[in-house]
Every structure is written in C-alpha cells, then in structure tokens.
Design a protein around this nucleic acid. Structure first.
Lengths: 242, 242
DNA sequence: CGTGGTTTTGAGCCCGTTCAAGTATCGTGG
DNA sequence: CCACGATACTTGAACGGGCTCAAAACCACG
C-alpha cells in the first residue's frame, strides 16, 4: 500500500492552474458559475491531489467545501481497526462538504491525479446568501448525491455478490469500443479489484471470482489496466437484481 | 404483513390540522420558518399517514417535497423480487425530496401515525429563490442526511451482525428511565425485529439472536412492546466497531 | 380463551471470507 | 530491451457467520 497520506494540508497549491476562474472547465456545471467570481477568486484555494494522496479531516478543522475540477477521487470511510468502505466518488463538477470537528470518519483519496478548489464553508455560506442561484445548484447536487447513496445502501444491504458486481458494471462499465448508448461512464472509472471490493462491501477475491465468472459467461471481457468491457448489457442488467 | 399500501394519493387530507401554519410545532426548526407563510399556506397539502400507510412514488409523478410534522416514517427501498432495505428515518422537522418519474424505488411508510406537508418541488423551488434563508436550512439538513447515510453505508458494508446491532442501539436505544445523557432517542424509535433487520441488512432471526445475546451479557434489557433498554452504554459502545 | 402476529430458539446449509500459493502485469533501472 | 521487484490479480481449499426453514413460545387483543 505505502499510502501517501498527509494531514489536511497537503497536495501543493496548484501553480499550473490559472489564478482566475476564466476558462475553468467546470464553470458551466458547477455552483461557482452563478457566484461572484471576483469574490470567490480570493477565497478559494486551488490544489492538486496526486494519485493516492489523501485529505483527511483532522480534529479542529473548520468545515470546508471541496469543489472537484478534474480527475477522480473516492470518499473513504474507515473504522478504527482499519476496515474501509468507499462511500462514493466525485468527479468534475461534483462537490463535497466536510463537516467541522473531523467527527466524520471520512477521507478523500485521489484516483489518479485530481484538481480541486477548497473553500471555507462558513465563509462560502455567507456569500451564497446573496446568490440563491448558486445555492440552488448546490441543493440540486446534494439531492443527486442523496439518491446515489440511497441506491448504494440498497446494494450493500440486500444484494448478493453477483448482483453487486453486476450493478456496478451496469453503472460504470466500459463498452468494447465507442458508445453503445448506455450509462455514460462517469470518468472511465478504472479501479483496482481491491477498490471495487471496497466499494461493494466484498473481498477482493470474491470480486475477482465473480468477474472471471462473468467473463466465462461472455457477459464481459477483461482488458489490461483494470479495464472491464461490457459485452452484453442486457444479460448483465438481468443479473443486477433490479 | 397485510400492508396498507396505496398509490401516491393516500392518507386523507388532514382536517384536524390547523389551516394556517400558526402554532405548527416544527416552525422553529423547519425551512418553512423562513418562508413567506401566506404563500406556502396555499401551496402545501397537509396529510396524515396512519400506521403502515405508504406513499409510493408512482411513474409520472412530479417531484415533491415532503415535510414531516409529527410522528415517524421510514424510507424503504425495494427490489423487484421483494427484498427491502430501510434507508433511513424521518421525524418532525425532517424533509424528503422525492424525484420525478418514480425512478427512485423509494417509498415512505409511517411507523405509527405521522403528519406531514406535501409541496410540489418545482413550485417550491421557485419560491425559495427569494428566500435564501430557507434554502440554506434545506441545504444544511441535506448535509446532515448525507452524513447519516454515509455512516450507515459503512455499517452495512463492513460491520458484523453484532456490531450492526450495537451501533443501532447506541444511536437509538432507550435508557431504563430518564436521561442518562446519551444520544437522545430521536423519537422513541420502537421498531419490530423485522424492521430492525431491514434497517441493518440482516434477517430477523439474526437480530433476535444478537439481542438476546446482549441481554444475557447484561448490556441491555428487553422490555415489552419492542422497547430495548440500554443498561451499559460504555460496554455496548465498545461493541460497535467504532 | 382463542387467534394472529411477533419473537425466540434450533438445526443445517450456503455464500462469501480467510488463508495461502501461484500467475500476470507494470514500472524501473541496468 | 531485458531482468527484476513490486503490485495486482487469480485460483484453490477450508472455515464460519449469517441465512433459511421449521417449530415452539410469547404477547396483544378481541
């Protein structure tokens, strides 16, 4: 593992990123679209998170809003004895609010390289009072996050290993080439078996077994570099339990 | 079971409830505090949900916001084959947004008698644009809901049966009498073993076994009418896995 | 006192885990 | 370009926690 983890202040400030928000790729889909940019500009802190770097929410930290610009991160919940559960993912245009106190045992870990903007949540909240449009966007995205979590709860609580893996693939799997029209893979999600297991509440071995089983049945093809190609969406869909 | 379920329009309109919002018990803690009451008054639909009555989100229904006034409801996710998972609870001052389309396989079921107000979400959203304070409250509560779900995910994904039950009790258990200072039982949560199992992703038998085990160990006492009294918070806390 | 629902308890089984090798893949430096 | 080490993945065997099925005990209520 040799995880490159640091406490809270980490991932150097992003010198490469433009100092202003002009040309920022997530402007059209993020809440900051509606905000007074010249205000935000001096309140945010841009940063880059390299592969496996982690933001852990330490005690006494004030609440923050993380706004993700590019790349992909996973939200990880941890128990004292080291068991972990991936609670979800965040990509460009998504955000995450980390509560104060660090009583949330949640951390943010980059999958590959990720860029993000950090805001002091209390201060941002004040600003938002005068930007209902921006707040409305946040509320809408919160709602999406809630729905995603609710669905995931159902998966974790009630589905078998086969169903769990199938559900994941239908949401995030790649097609052999091009479109196939199905559920746009949010970010070409390339996870290790261990991460997959961690997301689905399984062991890596079980994930591996189910995947090879699916491959034998011709539903998917296993490529190199964690790529998983879905060959038969319909058949796979019938295995999700939905 | 003989579940009293109906489609969407159900639970008669509440004649007993006062037509205006004056004296409403949740005013101080709900978003409607900040809203233009005379506007809301004519846009909401009050209703009572009797024990086990259900609101299911049918196809083609427009999005709604349910604001819970009194009593307790559970949010239930269902798979086509009938497996269910309780996704959470809502009590006075809580709300729930049900998306359009009914593509969310989520339903709301009363545990005992519950009162609530229904709003058309699109219309309410418009109103909220002029009430940033109210929107801020919604956003804050959304955040709480998210944190609750994230914690629950960790429980479902990674904890053993013993740990699951212990975690639940520490959150929601009663004390033998009076205060004991601990986590205020949100609503004297009195659930059947089946509901408990449904919340924790277990079978009723397993829940029962773990509970009697805890009772034998002197950590809890089992009362009548589903009451579970926690005798030793500390010991129980050490069994939660946290 | 009977009836229907809930809870408890028991026995056996199965899915997914754990433990342990073995294999493939990737990155790095010679 | 290849050899090497590290990491990721696969596969097998055995165990065990929680489920299923079944029956008995308990309880609330008419």
């Amino acid at each position: 593992m040799a995880s490159a983890s640091t406490e809270c202040v980490l991932g150097k400030k992003d010198a490469a990123q433009p100092p202003d928000c002009i040309g920022c790729p997530i402007q059209p889909i993020s809440f900051c679209r509606e905000s007074d940019i010249s205000n935000l500009r001096y309140r945010r802190q841009q940063m880059i998170l390299n592969d496996r770097e982690t933001i852990t929410c330490a005690r006494g930290t004030p609440a923050e809003l993380l706004n993700f610009v590019s790349g992909l991160v996973k939200l990880v919940g941890t128990l004292p004895d080291g068991r972990t559960q991936i609670l979800g993912f965040r990509g460009p245009g998504d955000f995450l609010i980390i509560g104060e106190d660090g009583k949330q045992a949640i951390s943010v870990e980059a999958v590959g390289t990720a860029r993000l903007c950090r805001f002091s949540w209390p201060r941002l909240q004040q600003l938002l009072q005068e930007r209902p449009q921006a707040m409305a966007i946040l509320l809408g995205k919160s709602q999406e996050q809630l729905e995603e979590l609710q669905e995931h709860l159902l998966v974790l609580g009630r589905k078998s290993a086969r169903e769990k893996v199938a559900s994941f693939l239908v949401r995030y799997g790649l097609t052999r080439r091009g479109v196939q029209g199905q559920c746009p893979p949010r970010a070409q999600l390339l996870l290790t078996r261990a991460e997959l297991a961690d997301y689905l509440g399984l062991s890596t071995e079980t994930v591996s077994r189910v995947l090879t089983q699916f491959a034998k049945e011709g539903l998917i093809a296993l490529g190199r570099a964690q790529a998983i190609y879905v060959l038969d969406w319909e058949q796979l869909g019938s295995q999700t339990g939905n």
